[in-house]
Design a protein around this nucleic acid. Structure first.
Length: 564
RNA sequence: GGGCUCGUGGCUUAGCCCGGAUAUAGCGCUGGGCUUCUAACCCAGAUGUCGAGGGUUCGAAUCCCUCCGGGCCCGCCA
């Protein structure tokens, strides 16, 4: 709805500009507290046409023509600014469209296949609070892109050829696996012990190297050992992801690209590149021309491949199946991902779009699975759920046990996801228990609560046999009502900008603002006790709010409860 | 040392790409509001040299330069 409004403003302004005899590409449109959309284009024109901005503004303003059915109500001139306001038509059509399209409201018409890779944590232990920043950003982005219209598939790239997995396998051969623990946690225990032993007793190091070699060569017994170890860890990892409402469409093992020969083919092609060079028997690519000072090694002197080489083959394979590749990566991958892109470009292959998120650290420093210094996603979720339970217990003492547990579960998952997604990926954060367990702040529960309130009104109406199939949207004229409808109308432009910029936090902010305006409406505008014709119109608006709140929450992967 | 990135009230944070009209919101703080649809709510108030300095511009949180502080990276690791 807002997308069309913006388009109309742009075209109305462009033709006014043309009629007034001005020429400029940038319409200088921006959001403003003074209007639904404002333009400061007169300022831009002033120096070129050597007239004062106000004069220019008047000339443009005089030429503005708005058609009767437009989404623009009127334009107004304030000093050198032109302010545009949304029309009743837009407001009414918003209500109509939401009720018609329901869960599809806000679905855009972008086309194309997207493969989005996220999480891809090494299967050497459980997901920790750093990993899930990746998972939540990735999953939310996948949901945003789906709503934008793309055909999205998510992939988890399993690094099964790295040394850390060989260490896990070696550990499983030398230490006892604790079957009573969640499998990914039991694997972490093995991994931590094995690392400690390998540091203390250096003589075992060649045993790990031998495992890696045998795995790369495809020795059946070793392959089985690796597979068992990884499946065990992945079983636990997937369970944690599922708990957070996250699932992957595919799991891609990096070893497959070695086995299919894709990796050797990529290395052969790199050898033919002008910037390829052999140094001390290793194949490397000089990337100075791409503004990267560090050359990239793609083949060891013993002829084996490296992580990046396999990643190159992975991307070549992916590119053939989609129009866009998107990778969600931690800040430690900044250099390596720009090297990856540079080599792909040199090879004439499509490059992925990379979303980098900054690190999550603990107050005492950075996390490390290897050293056992981390807070697991499971631990975080458990603690938050416990806090959420005591909150429901306090707020709804009248309800039964099953209800409280159910509410604690969706509130905690929502709170965790929202806390992660609300901040821009390029802010480094320090984890804070007090912050994580705080339910007073405006977060997911606030939005879920607004949704539950809307559901409650609808339910009360239904229980009372009050129908609202026919209603007149023109009766929705209170300040809180129009503010609410405008917010509903901007859901499409929110999805549009979030998907364009791959910025999931925009949707998080939108959901919070929508809940905010709904709560104000709820407070000041009576629904069920209003006169029948107003009651019907307001019930329709409540239903719209419920639908869009649910859509926004769904886009964030957060449950939209009917009651809490 | 070099590269990338972040720095916005006591704390957390939006806006920065694409410069505009009183800088966004939350927590916390002060005060107020439940005989009305769920108070996990709402209203009012105090709190800011937008890290510092310079420059560009009619206009800078936003663009450019320098500096300071935090994070990440700079392996024939992944």
């Amino acid at each position: 709805m807002f997308l069309r409004f913006k388009d109309e403003v742009a075209s109305v302004l462009s033709s006014a500009l043309a009629k007034a005899g001005f020429e400029i590409d940038d319409l200088a449109l921006h959001e403003s507290p003074h209007a639904d959309i404002a333009s400061s284009v007169a300022f831009r024109l002033a120096p070129e046409y050597k007239r004062n901005p106000k004069e220019i503004c008047e000339a443009i303003y005089k030429n503005i023509r708005i058609t009767p059915d437009s989404y623009i109500e009127r334009a107004e001139m304030v000093g050198p600014y032109i302010n545009f306001f949304v029309s009743r038509t837009l407001l009414n059509e918003t209500v109509l469209r939401v009720l018609l399209e329901r869960e599809d409201f806000g679905v855009l018409e972008k086309k194309g296949a997207v493969i989005l890779e996220h999480t891809s944590a090494n299967p050497d232990g459980p997901l920790h609070i750093g990993h899930i920043r990746n998972s939540v950003i990735g999953d939310t982005l996948a949901r945003i892109l789906k709503r934008a219209g793309y055909d999205v598939r998510t992939q988890y790239y399993i690094n099964d050829m790295g040394r850390q997995i060989a260490v896990v396998v070696w550990g499983l051969m030398n230490f006892e696996f604790d079957k009573t623990k969640k499998p990914d946690h039991a694997i972490a225990e093995i991994y931590i012990n094995a690392n400690k032993t390998l540091v203390d007793e250096k003589e075992h190091s060649p045993e790990v190297d031998a495992l890696m070699k045998k795995y790369e060569n495809g020795d059946p017994e070793t392959v089985q050992r690796f597979k068992d170890a990884i499946d065990t860890a992945m079983h636990g990892i997937e369970e944690s992801l599922r708990r957070m409402n996250i699932s992957h469409d595919e799991f891609i093992w990096e070893s497959r690209f070695v086995r299919t020969g894709d990796v050797s083919r990529v290395m052969e092609r790199i050898k033919k590149l002008n910037c390829a060079m052999i140094k001390d028997g290793a194949l490397m690519v000089d990337l100075k021309d791409m503004d990267i000072q560090k050359p990239l090694v793609v083949q060891r002197s013993d002829g084996t491949s490296l992580y990046t080489t396999r990643d190159l083959a992975y991307h070549e394979w992916k590119a053939a199946m989609c129009d866009r590749m998107i990778d969600i990566l931690g800040a430690d991958h900044k250099l390596i991902s720009s090297q990856l892109k540079a080599v792909l470009r040199l090879l004439g292959l499509p490059e992925p779009e990379i979303v980098i998120f900054e690190f999550v650290s603990l107050p005492e420093g950075s996390m490390s699975t290897r050293r056992g210094v981390f807070i697991s996603a499971d631990e975080l979720l458990d603690e938050v759920e416990r806090a959420a339970y005591s909150e429901v217990n306090k707020k709804r003492p009248d309800t039964d046990e099953e209800f409280k547990k159910k509410v604690a579960a969706f509130v905690s998952i929502g709170a965790v996801r929202y806390d992660i997604i609300r901040v821009s990926p390029d802010k480094a954060t320090t984890f804070d228990w007090r912050e994580a367990l705080d339910f007073e702040k405006q977060g997911a529960p606030f939005i879920q609560y607004a949704h539950a309130r809307a559901c409650s009104i609808i339910k009360n109406a239904q229980d009372g046999g009050i129908a609202f199939e026919s209603y007149d949207p023109n009766l929705l004229v209170e300040e809180q009502e129009t503010a609410l409808i405008k917010k509903l109308a901007s859901f499409d432009s929110t999805i549009d900008s979030a998907s364009r910029g791959l910025k999931p936090h925009i949707v998080a902010i939108y959901a919070r603002e929508l809940a905010d305006v709904f709560n104000q409406f709820y407070k000041y505008v009576p629904v069920l006790s209003a006169e029948p014709e107003f009651r019907a119109a307001r019930l329709a608006l409540v239903d719209c709010s419920r639908i869009v709140l649910a859509n926004a929450l769904d886009t964030l992967g957060i449950a939209a409860p009917e009651s809490m």
